[in-house]
Amino acid sequence: MSAAPETREGTAPIGRRVRLFLRHNSLGLFFVTAFLLALSGQAVAGHAEFNNQLVADGLEPIGFGAYLTTSDFGVDVMENWQSEYLQFFLYIFGTVYLLQRGSPESKELGRAGIESDQDQMVGEHAADDSPRWAAATGWRTAVYSRSLGLVMGTIFLLSFLAQSVTGVAAYNEQQLRQLQAPVSWSAYLSSADFWSRTLQNWQSELLAVASMAVLAIYLRQRGSPESKPVGASHSATGVEG
C-alpha cells in the first residue's frame, strides 16, 4: 500500500475510510471470506456424509458441533491445509534457484540464487522504510530474509503432523466399525490410507504450480500481476503485468 492512500485513509470521514480499507485489502478479505464459506460448506456436507454412514451401519448420528471435533472432519481439513502450505513453501524456495524461460512466475534468467545485498536492500543497503530486521545485521537479517518460506514450511509441518494424528484416529474409528484391529501412529505413517490421502493432494498442487509456471508463458490475463502484460513477448522472463 502506498503512502498517499494511507494518508487519505487517515484523514477521510469514517464511511470513506471503511470503503478505502475494504478496497485496499479486498484481495485478502475476499479469500479469507471465501475460505470461511468453503470450510463451513465442507463441515455441513461432511456432517451429512458422516451421519449417513453411521445410520447405514446401525449407529446413532451425531450433532453438528460434535462432528466438528471428530477426527474425520479434522483429517479432511488438515490433509488439504498441509498440501497447500507445502505448495507455497516449495514455490517460495524453489523460485529462488529454479527458472522458467518466458514465465512471469520466474525471475529473470541469470538471476538464480539469493541475489546480492544491494538487490535485496538488506544491511547497509536498506532504505529508510525497510523493515527493521532487514536493516539489522547477523541472525535477524538471516531469519527475516527467509521468514516467508520458514513460516510456510512450519505451517506445512504442523498441519502434516496434525493430519497424521487426526488421520490415525479417523482410520482406527473406521477399523473398529468394521470389526478390525486399530493400528499405531507409527504403523499408520506407512499405511496406504495415509499416503493415498497425502499424495492425492500433493499431485494436484504440483500440477497447479507447473500449469501456472508454463501456461503463463503463452497466455495472458490483462491487469493481473500473475500474468505478463498482454503485449509482452513469449520469451520475456520475470515480467509481471
Partner: peptide
C-alpha cells in the same frame, strides 16, 4: 501467522481429545 499456527494446533488438540471427555 502465529494465530494460524495456534489454530492448527488447537484444531489438532480438539480433534484428538474430542468433545466427550
Amino acid at each position: 501467522m502465529s494465530g494460524r499456527t495456534a489454530s492448527v494446533a488447537a484444531l489438532a488438540v480438539l480433534v484428538t481429545v474430542s468433545s466427550c471427555g
